[in-house]
Design a protein around this nucleic acid. Structure first.
Lengths: 239, 239
DNA sequence: CAACAATGAGAGCACCGCTCTTGTTTTTTC
DNA sequence: GAAAAAACAAGAGCGGTGCTCTCATTGTTG
């Protein structure tokens, strides 16, 4: 399947990669709305119409960049999870969140591409949902491990309204049937709130408000962990 | 100061308003990145160059829309606060959050304008910070009232790291010197997290994940209230 | 009334996304 | 190995964009 068949196919892969690379460079320099196919082509020494052999439209190029960004961020989160194997769940939660933040701080424009305003009229194709769910699935993995170890406390807060419980139950069936329903509901909220913190920091809302951004982030995601039932003290029991 | 001096000045105010109105219509129809000065001018029966007498650039038009949007959202939040005078702080908190959500759901593109990816290269001018702070100040008002009434519990979570405490202390001096520092820190986090919930809902991240969006939002902002020390049970004491 | 500043109209510049046609090169098929 | 098919690059061109410039007109003010 991944066998490269000939010079043409090899060239196509290389050119496609070069286009995305140059597009990412322009993204970082100018932002998504100023990404120009003509400029990308010019920089690559080709004519603009040639670029349409590789991406049928500007939106398709953006979609490819979106998928790449989701994948890169997800890989970062998964790497953080793997790196902290054996640590306490609360610490792993914080580590995963931090890795996401580090990735976003290094590539703010790619972050904006996936968590900023959606391009108008643009419906995210199904190809994006897999890559997009890698970060939340990583957070779920942390919680499942804590639950398996018996260190997961009940999430604080009022009991769930019926429709929320229904949503959470459906999600639990997909993500971790053994998890208590309120934990799943709290997880979804924490997931959104994590990116609220990131977006505010990256989009400038914290300017002149929060200066110690890293410390503040750690504090906030620690609190988020508490919201899903992960307590700082709990440690994985030795086998 | 606000006396209208002549026909010319009156016309200028009307034309400026008409331009913004038409621009908002296009914003709703096409999104910020497809907002076109020429199309606005065309719809208004003027030539595109005439529009530059009113806004020196497309970005300036966007800035005006941004300020209007912040102001409208802030007014909505303040109205919700006024409407619930005398209610328990926890209920007022939820009411303010709901009013912000309702405003955003009715004008998703204006929401995206102020809480989505910033226009690249675009630095928010100082004019925006006043209108932008109306919503957070409304949330602060709820918490201050609860504190004055003595119903504000200590926010849960680990003690604050020194730099976070310093930021929060500086903010407390501006926003409410009587408030405990950890409450101020939790407030900033809740503020960001509130818009995380909103952005995920509005930008499509909850598609196929959360269906009962209103109920879920209420649940989540209720938990957010708990994070700043507002408990559902506490009621304002009768005078 | 005259001088002035604000406004509108039009042409034009450089750029954009995208399409179509033309000629070339690689791959596939017989 | 030659012919047919597919992939590709290049160029011209269409209708659109933000923005600037010039020039005539119109309301304001001394």
């Amino acid at each position: 399947m991944s066998v490269i068949r000939g010079a043409r196919e090899r060239a196509r892969i290389e050119v496609t990669a070069a286009i995305k690379e140059e597009a990412r460079r322009q993204l970082a320099a100018e932002g998504a709305s100023r990404l120009s196919l003509r400029a990308v082509a010019r920089e690559l020494g080709m004519v603009s119409s040639a670029l349409y052999r590789y991406f049928p439209s500007r939106d398709e190029l953006l979609t490819a960049l979106i998928i790449d960004a989701y994948d890169a961020m997800g890989a970062e989160a998964e790497a953080a999870l793997a790196r902290t194997a054996g640590d306490a769940p609360h610490a792993r939660w914080v580590a995963v969140c931090r890795s996401v933040r580090d990735w976003a701080l290094a590539r703010p424009h790619e972050y904006a591409l996936i968590y900023g305003s959606p391009v108008p009229g643009y419906i995210a194709p199904m190809d994006t949902v897999g890559p997009a769910s890698r970060v939340p699935l990583t957070l779920v993995a942390v919680v499942r491990e804590a639950h398996a170890a018996g260190t997961l406390g009940p999430p604080p807060g009022s009991p769930l309204a019926a429709p929320v419980r229904a949503d959470a139950a459906r999600l639990a069936a997909e993500l971790g049937p053994e998890l208590p329903i309120p934990v799943v509901a709290a997880l979804v909220g924490s997931w959104a709130q994590l990116f609220g913190l990131l977006s505010f920091e990256l989009f400038g809302q914290f300017n002149r408000v929060v200066e110690a951004r890293g410390a503040f982030f750690d504090q906030a995601v620690g609190a988020l962990a508490g919201q899903v039932g992960l307590s700082p003290a709990a440690v994985l029991p030795a086998e």
